[in-house]
Simulated scan of single mutants.
Amino acid sequence: MNDIQRLFSVFFCCRSRQNQARRIIPTDSDDPRRSFIYFGIDALSINNSTTLIIADFGSSHGRNSIQTMKMIIEYLKQANKLRSSPLIIHNDLPTNDWTRLFQLLAEENLYKALVNGCSFYEQCLPLNCLSIGFSSASLHILSKKPCNIDNHCYFHFANEKERELLQAQSKSDFARFLKYRSQELQSGGVLILNIPSIKENEEMGFHFYFDLIYKSAKSLKILTSQELVDFTIPFYLRSLSECLDFELFNRYLLKLIKAEFICLKLLIFDQYQNGEIELDYFAKSLTMLMRPGTDSALKEALKLNQRTNQEIEHISTQFWSLFEEKLKLESYDGNINTYATYLILKKN
């Protein structure tokens, strides 16, 4: 739904866990999505005499989305499940950088596409039209903030009451997402989902960098105390058990075809720790990864407090320059792992 979703699809190698047994995902590519997407397409069982409609929910700027759609189309051809050119729908919020996506679509010229500017927590498409629904690293983004987080901006550092509110919002949002996708899917259509997750009872090293974001905000003297309070990133990472909601699947006529709990190790951290890239490059690259999704929360807090557009852009630039400089002074020495739950759901 915004670019931080790409944190989990750039610069990584991976291992997976299924049914508590660890193994390497079989794949012919460094991209762990590939074998999972292939499995989802193999499960597809709709009338292929009609035009297939494929939607990416949370396309962001489009580069990763376009490449994924290309991957899906190529395998549909290999699997003999494509009789005519499919129609691709790129979905994201109206505030998305659509100009960038249009430019990339024109440059690539790979398929026929439309864009859909609305929240994927609403109905986005007509009933019973969708063949394949895909979403990569977007479903941790909440439809709204249920509360501000006291003395921080990130859910991991929320107190018990705040965390309960965030968890409830996450559960409600997941139900809405599945409800509307089920209505849009044809019988026999599939959802292929990559959901950013947490491993229960494990400290994630990546939280260090969200803590550094909050420290940067506190250090930015131009922010008022109220703006700091309002700076809450509307994220919630589910556990595997929260993703596997069978009551919800049954309610919306969705059958679980496959589930994987994936450990993603961001290669950029290994490269830096092994001395393969310089500190300046590491700090700049990580800032580029962290900025888009987090920046929207910062800008929303500034807008809420009546800042002008010019002020908002100026403060944003200052903030991310400060964050990049702090990255050069502070780093996390342990392993930086992130996790995702991969789900394939099929409409009955």
Rank of each mutant, 00 (worst) to 15 (best):
C153P: 06
W320G: 04
I53T: 12
I132P: 04
L302M: 06
N274T: 06
K303N: 11
P234T: 02
Y38Q: 15
D295T: 06
L345H: 11
K144F: 04
H152M: 01
N274V: 00
R6E: 12
D270W: 04
F235L: 08
Q318W: 01
I73C: 11
S219L: 12
D150R: 09
A79K: 12
S170F: 11
S296R: 01
N19K: 15
L298H: 06
R291W: 00
Y75H: 09
F174M: 15
F57E: 02
P146N: 06
A301D: 05
D173V: 00
K218A: 08
T27H: 11
H152C: 09
H156E: 13
D173A: 01
S60P: 03
I262V: 11
E227G: 07
K326R: 15
T51R: 13
R63A: 14
A21V: 08
D31V: 01
D173P: 02
K284D: 14
H140P: 02
A301C: 06
L52R: 09
F269A: 06
E330Q: 15
D3R: 10
F246G: 05
K303T: 14
I192N: 06
N337D: 13
G188W: 09
E300T: 10
L286E: 03
A21Q: 15
S85I: 09
L266A: 05
L114I: 15
F134G: 02
S35R: 10
A301M: 04
L254F: 05
Y121F: 12
Q78N: 13
H152F: 09
S331T: 14
S197H: 03
D31R: 01
Y342H: 06
V229K: 11
F235Q: 03
Q169L: 03
F8I: 00
E164L: 10
G58R: 03
Q306G: 00
C124M: 14
Q169N: 02
P146T: 03
G58C: 10
D56T: 14
E202G: 03
L130D: 07
S216R: 03
G62D: 10
Y154R: 02
E74D: 15
A79F: 11
T68A: 14
N47C: 12
Y342E: 03
S216T: 15
I4Y: 14
D173L: 00
A21L: 13
L101K: 08
C129Q: 11
R34L: 11
G188P: 15
F120C: 13
L286R: 02
T294E: 00
L191H: 07
R291K: 08
T308K: 01
L223I: 00
L142S: 05
L7H: 05
K328F: 08
L178Q: 04
